[in-house]
Nucleic acid binder design. Structure first.
Lengths: 231, 231
DNA sequence: TAGATTGTTAATCGATTAACAATC
DNA sequence: TAGATTGTTAATCGATTAACAATC
């Protein structure tokens, strides 16, 4: 359904491209800070560590923003990528689970530039509740997990970052979903069950290490295949 | 070079398969804990959230461990996946940058089961140096960053987890590489430069949120495409 | 043997990349 | 105009998946 022309056009951007847009945005920010007004696909691709043809193909999905013979306008490209991945707006984020990982994520100072704002912190530990966590520009008080539903009710469009212990991740996830949250970023090393329509993304830090270990052992055995970066 | 038959065989495992093996291993651990001795590709695939044909194809790269008409032996499969990705051995890991994120990673208690052991912690902050960090089974003292080289010299096969501020990530990375480390997991939102032969993997937590935001905005516009999990 | 399930083939699908016409 | 660089085409490559013969 909803296959009107405009929307169908938006939908044609491949997932692989979407996954690279944040990388381009980050690279563009560096270039802008260095005073570049314009950049060629060659230069931007090299700075981002991708193939120039791939970069141009990726950008072509956003529309035609480059100028032949010249390159891309840095500020314009930042704006259009930002608009595309939705970091032009500011998404409210609620973090559930204020252990070291949750605290690290809360204190991460790059949200503003990336389209997010941490608006609430939740934990179950009685010694944490009420504590103030110093963020980049403000500070937030940790709310009790019993108030999870009322906290989420105050921020209807919230995305939730789940940094609870793995044992309770599923039940907290269920409550978050029941409260109407449609997007969850989980750090619990377990496959969470969510209903259709909820977007779940899982970052498993142990998995990242294991993939690295695999390449390390390949390396040790074979003695270098000139592989530099793996995404 | 080194294209002998045995090694060439090992090298044929696709990266996409490697990236899923930790997921299978995690799922198998859950199944083993639940008392399953044997599991079909159908059941394992469902538990891991992948297509059964894909699972069988992935496992076929490890050799033939299944039994037709029966399924896979859980313990045997755990062992062979573990052997393949190198989590049968125990890799020493050094964490550089003991902020909240570094501390969270140091305290993560799942290393033993996943093939890692945190053997040293390094930071530059004078108030952190010498502090004991309580790990799952032991505790470790934070070493000064000036001792980075001597710390790494004591653990020659070390993988390094880089959780420093983004501003110093490249220079710390350089020192780590100079000290002979060949595998780095970085959490700094910047594209690090490493020489050929060094394997670098970058986890950019802001990027994860941005990709989620994209799908969230698609969702809001189009009203559900029944997408559940995105890897 | 009958039923179940693997391992593999072949078809499909999507992503990457080189090449170049379009055009600034 | 001449040089540079995009946007797009078409070829290649790799990954996914359905289907089924092999076989426990």
């Amino acid at each position: 359904m909803a296959e009107s022309d405009g929307i169908a056009l938006l939908r044609t951007i491949p997932d692989a491209t979407i996954a690279r847009l944040p990388l381009y945005l980050r690279t563009l920010t560096t270039l802008a800070d260095a005073g570049h007004d314009t950049v060629s696909s060659q230069a931007l691709a090299e700075a981002a560590g991708v193939n120039p043809a791939q970069l141009r193909k990726d950008l072509s999905h956003l529309g035609s923003y480059g100028v032949r013979g010249v390159g891309y306008d840095v500020a314009h490209l930042q704006a259009s990528i930002g608009a595309q991945i939705g970091s032009a707006q500011e998404w409210p984020v609620v973090i559930v689970g204020m252990g070291n990982l949750g605290t690290a994520l809360a204190r991460y100072s790059g949200y503003a530039v990336r389209g997010f704002r941490v608006v609430a912190l939740v934990d179950v530990a009685s010694d944490l509740i009420g504590q103030q966590v110093q963020l980049a520009t403000t500070s937030l008080e940790i709310s009790p997990e019993s108030a999870l539903e009322s906290v989420l009710a105050r921020f209807p469009a919230a995305m939730v970052v789940l940094t609870t212990p793995v044992e309770v991740a599923q039940q907290v996830c269920d409550r978050v979903v029941a409260a109407g949250v449609r997007s969850i970023l989980s750090f619990a090393p377990v496959l969470l069950q969510v209903p259709d329509g909820v977007v779940l993304r899982t970052v498993d830090l142990g998995r990242e290490l294991q993939i690295l270990a695999y390449h390390q052992s390949r390396h040790a055995e074979i003695g270098g295949d000139d592989r530099k970066e793996i995404w």
